[in-house]
Design a protein around this nucleic acid. Sequence first.
DNA 1: AAAATAATTTGATATAGATCACATATATTT
DNA 2: AAATATATGTGATCTATATCAAATTATTTT
Lengths: 190, 190
Amino acid sequence: MKKLLREHFEKIIALTDSEFDYIYDHFVFKKIIKHQFLIQQGDRVHNEYFVVKGCLKSYMIDSDDKAHILQFALPDWWVSDYQALNNGSPSTLYLDSVDGAEILSITMENKDKLCAEMHKVEHFFRKKTNWGYVALQQRILSLLNSNAKDRYEQLLKQYPALFKTVPKQLLASYLGVTRETLSRLYTPAK
Amino acid sequence: MKKLLREHFEKIIALTDSEFDYIYDHFVFKKIIKHQFLIQQGDRVHNEYFVVKGCLKSYMIDSDDKAHILQFALPDWWVSDYQALNNGSPSTLYLDSVDGAEILSITMENKDKLCAEMHKVEHFFRKKTNWGYVALQQRILSLLNSNAKDRYEQLLKQYPALFKTVPKQLLASYLGVTRETLSRLYTPAK
DNA sequence: AAAATAATTTGATATAGATCACATATATTT
DNA sequence: AAATATATGTGATCTATATCAAATTATTTT
């Protein structure tokens, strides 16, 4: 998993062995089991997580106790409650795994430290966040202009890996439909 | 408007006069009139825009000729088609002003150059994008968990400035409802 | 200030998707 | 392998929002 993280950085910046080792020392490896929370609503958030294995999900629970999934995080992705992380406010989200996972965790202090010490690490994260920003814009547009069926098909096309791991009711929650409606989408005959 | 940009940077990083002048030299000032496009679907995109005055809107037109507004950009905000900008692909968006505007435009080459030359400028943009990312996450959650009325009220609360400038049909398009439905929301009596 | 254009409101009706209530699979745990 | 828990599917009905069609009301332009 050291290799996975290194390759991840090296998609954007070049690193010597010692540079990467230095970066890597700021991370902590962790295995989490099913139903183990990395973040719960109300928590103070200090860490960002890089997924090595498995699949995490971040979600909110609304006033009707319905869950809404903000993000799935597969290997090679970053996840946290960025709002809580950025301004030190209590988390509004839950973060746990779909089915157990392995992660590399870094504190925001360490991330900022690495960014300050190594210009190219700051560059890496600027580019990363920028791509993340574009991905969120795409998701907003698909919520605005597509119906449930089209959104499901777009998701299936873009992230086929999700369909191996993730129960359909969670996909429904990510897409913004009920599980009943999702179930009816792929039995279109009538 | 030089002042506005400087204050904008100095919310996150400190700059000497000469540093700021150097940065500022990479921008081009532009006035745009109503109905003048900064980006049209199919264009190659080379610039990012900082709004000085007025209000810009970025939007897509779907296959039924309906517009969906991705973003409003008020003074002190950045806007472009970031997907097209990042990977050199043709734009899928339109970008124009609600009612005339003044902007500072910077090419992506110049932005990258400034980021490479000045670590703190890279830091500035990392932080900026990070906040933008959080704002988009909030918007996704509000699309997933709120009905049209609540989304309208959240918007009204968060960006009261929009209601002075922007016709309600454009707000409807941003919120993901029709103008007819929006019109009925604030006449709730029945 | 008339004329033209753009924005908003209102009514009647249609529809995608939600909700509620079970039935049926499919996994997990004992 | 039972027993329990979890996930999925189906029917009947309800509801928020869309759609289509006009009528008003504002805002520009001549």
